[in-house]
């Protein structure tokens, strides 16, 4: 299967290792991985702030970038949620672009959903001997409808001990520009989220959205915590390397 990566601006610029891990996992599952290089951002920062015209311009460049792609996979439930739910709405006044937006929406998958729903992955042959807790990001779960896919993937990893995160469904306080605009409330929210992470006692926090993980990780780092924060793709890739006896680093 030919799979095009929508890597997201955040993974591209700040967390490239997430993209590397995702690429290697998809390749090991037999996918031919492509990277349309004219991709940028899903447009969500502008859209969520009310700048739909600006979001549209960015969305057009994204639709163009993936025009030729069969299937698109992305390491972010939030960005995929944007494409799936809001792109068609953004172009509701243009039948031509509306159709293109719908087509892109129907071809785009979040990483964990793609593995479970499309590739029907049963086991990845990974081993990860640590205690792990999972934060379900709001947009991934509520907007896109990620249910237990990440949990199912984590449960097949050998020696991984999954610990439930208290109040897991609560927002971490990221919310894109919200984190800067309403920084006091956002700061209070991430403080509560990190205290739940620490309360869980897990040594690793895993998630499917780097925005949230950067937020939680940034607070954990400020608190001097040594809880490791990882994207699900990173954990699975590192787990496969561990199982093979290869150091992932």
């Amino acid at each position: 299967m030919k799979v095009s990566l929508f890597i997201t601006c955040m993974v591209d610029s700040i967390f490239p290792q997430v993209g590397v891990s995702m690429t290697k996992i998809l390749q090991s599952l037999g996918c031919e991985v492509l990277f349309p290089s004219s991709q940028t951002c899903c447009g969500q920062p502008a859209f969520n702030s009310g700048y739909s015209k600006e979001a549209r311009s960015v969305a057009i460049s994204m639709i163009n970038a993936f025009q030729e792609s069969d299937v698109i996979v992305s390491p972010s439930g939030s960005c995929v949620g944007m494409i799936r739910h809001f792109y068609p709405e953004l172009f509701s006044d243009s039948p031509e672009w509306h159709e293109k937006a719908l087509s892109l929406a129907n071809r785009t998958y979040e990483f964990s959903q793609f593995l479970i729903q499309i590739l029907k992955v049963e086991t990845l042959g990974a081993r990860f001997p640590y205690t792990v807790t999972y934060h379900p990001s709001c947009h991934g779960s509520r907007l896109l409808g990620i249910e237990d896919e990440p949990i199912r993937l984590l449960k097949q990893v050998e020696e991984l001990q999954l610990i439930e995160l208290p109040y897991a469904q609560d927002c971490c306080g990221f919310g894109g520009t919200f984190a800067v605009k309403m920084s006091e409330i956002s700061g209070a929210m991430v403080e509560e989220k990190t205290s739940h992470v620490l309360e869980s006692g897990a040594s690793v926090l895993v998630g499917t959205d780097m925005g949230c993980l950067m937020n939680i990780g940034g607070r954990l780092s400020r608190k001097g915590s040594n809880v490791r924060v990882m994207h699900l793709a990173e954990l699975l890739y590192e787990g496969r390397q561990l199982a093979k006896g290869v150091d992932a680093q």
């Binding site: 993974v11 610029s13 993209g19 590397v20 990277f35 800067v180 990780g217 400020r222």
Partner: peptide, 27 residues
């Protein structure tokens, strides 16, 4: 400022994903 008041921001890595991509593609 709004961000760093309560949390750290990660430094951008030396290479972006798109800069790493050519090496991945060849594998």
């Amino acid at each position: 400022a709004g961000w760093t008041k309560s949390r750290d921001f990660p430094m951008l890595p030396k290479q972006s994903f798109r800069e790493i991509w050519p090496s991945l593609k060849r594998e």
